[in-house]
Nucleic acid binder design. Sequence first.
DNA 1: GGCTCTCGATACCCTGGGGGTATGGATTCC
DNA 2: GGAATCCATACCCCCAGGGTATCGAGAGCC
Lengths: 273, 273
Amino acid sequence: MDSRELRYFVAVAEELHFGRAATRLGMAQPPLSRAIQHLERRMGVALLDRTSRSVALTAAGEVLLREGRRVLTALTAAERRTQRAGSARLVLAMKPVSDGDLLGEILADYAADPASIEVEVRICGIGEQSGLLRAGEADAALLRFPHDDPEGFAHEELLTERDVAVLPRTHRLADRGSLTMADLDGEQFPHWPGHPPNGGPLVRDTAQLMQLIALGRTIALLPGSARQHLRPDLVSVPVTDAPMTTMAIAWPEDSRSRPLAAFVEAAVKVARR
Amino acid sequence: MDSRELRYFVAVAEELHFGRAATRLGMAQPPLSRAIQHLERRMGVALLDRTSRSVALTAAGEVLLREGRRVLTALTAAERRTQRAGSARLVLAMKPVSDGDLLGEILADYAADPASIEVEVRICGIGEQSGLLRAGEADAALLRFPHDDPEGFAHEELLTERDVAVLPRTHRLADRGSLTMADLDGEQFPHWPGHPPNGGPLVRDTAQLMQLIALGRTIALLPGSARQHLRPDLVSVPVTDAPMTTMAIAWPEDSRSRPLAAFVEAAVKVARR
DNA sequence: GGCTCTCGATACCCTGGGGGTATGGATTCC
DNA sequence: GGAATCCATACCCCCAGGGTATCGAGAGCC
């Protein structure tokens, strides 16, 4: 099969409408209809049930949609990784305030390596790191367990620390020297993307989170190292029995890139000292 | 990128020779050269270092070869799975004599389900099951742990049994009621494909293995259930401390096929009783 | 019931790119 | 230095893939 046809099919299968799919693909509807017919003929299997009023997926079509999407993302990921293998630059994906204050040192340590290349730090939204890694847009990512999922990636744990509570300066618990999780019962926690809704406000980035905390709409448990970056109207309080979170660096399992290996090595070295 | 170009590139990267690659692809050499040039131009990265005498991969080319192969196999796997989703038939891959004598019952039990469809049992060589599964040629496979690797597949364990020694009837240990692993010290075990060579004869299928045992060239530890299928010139002897092996049924993690789910259910049900 | 609107399929045309052959030019080997 | 090898270039040709116009089948509306 040809990846062009696959792209066509995925577009139609997602839109369930030839006209819209054609627009999305930047082409006219008739050649799209024909291409799908070709595809079905060659594969010897019906992918779509169509009447003049509706388009629906057959069982085979559902399989091809699911698998096809994966193939297409793998294809563009391969493209990206290849392109970046040509450019002498590493791309590191991280969400803000999740570097455990180690990134500066890691970058400095790596830069000291005479064979080092430029490192672009790409700050992304919460939970987007693994997407960037999977799509081949980044060479490595800083993840935080258990929030992020290292599935399909190799990773190296760098730092484990206990979460602290981040509160508005005016919060009833803001003056306490330390807290327990029980003290936080009944508090409103934010709704992280990709997690089940808990009634709290949906938070997409850290600045937004900080703002919501300052407004008293929510409070958060953040890695201890986040303490250093708090706005003056927020305070952090240790929570003696808060969950531990682990920062790790992750990369595509089968990467053979020397610069990446050197960077990971630098990260581990800095974390161990 | 287009999968056709990717196929071209992979062929050249594997052959490191435009002429041979072109032959393999069933085309002439000049259009192949051009296609690769196009690809490099569009991606903005050199994939091959070529002189008039030699072709070598660049770093970027190595990345594309590795990732591209995977994409291409995923593509053909998607094609196969789609085609088979259209045909009302399940394909089960197994190597011979590894069904723990359960397969007959499983097939009967599944066939009793009114919604059941035809099941094709595909007997394959040793260690080939996961390849067939990965390539989308089979819907499910019988694996045996720890010999087979369920990586990337969902699986359900069906049966754990202790290996027995399979010996020629004339072997010095053939008359013993039971053995220990220590008794087998110094015996020549076969070399399984995909495992490191151990000096023993390479064995690709069970018939061959049985023949080699009968000839006294090797002996083997096989699942206890293999006992039933021994040739008359071979005997099996329990080994009290032999490793345990587990038979499992494995399938692509994200399969949504109803017939497959029903079949797995039947297999588990039979194994549990 | 007939008018209209929607939407996929069909008919037909046209262009560009992918493939072919012939040949050039560089390198290696005898 | 001549021959052989092998990738690149030059040039041609054809059809696959894309466009426009239109048909035909359902659905909804009055």
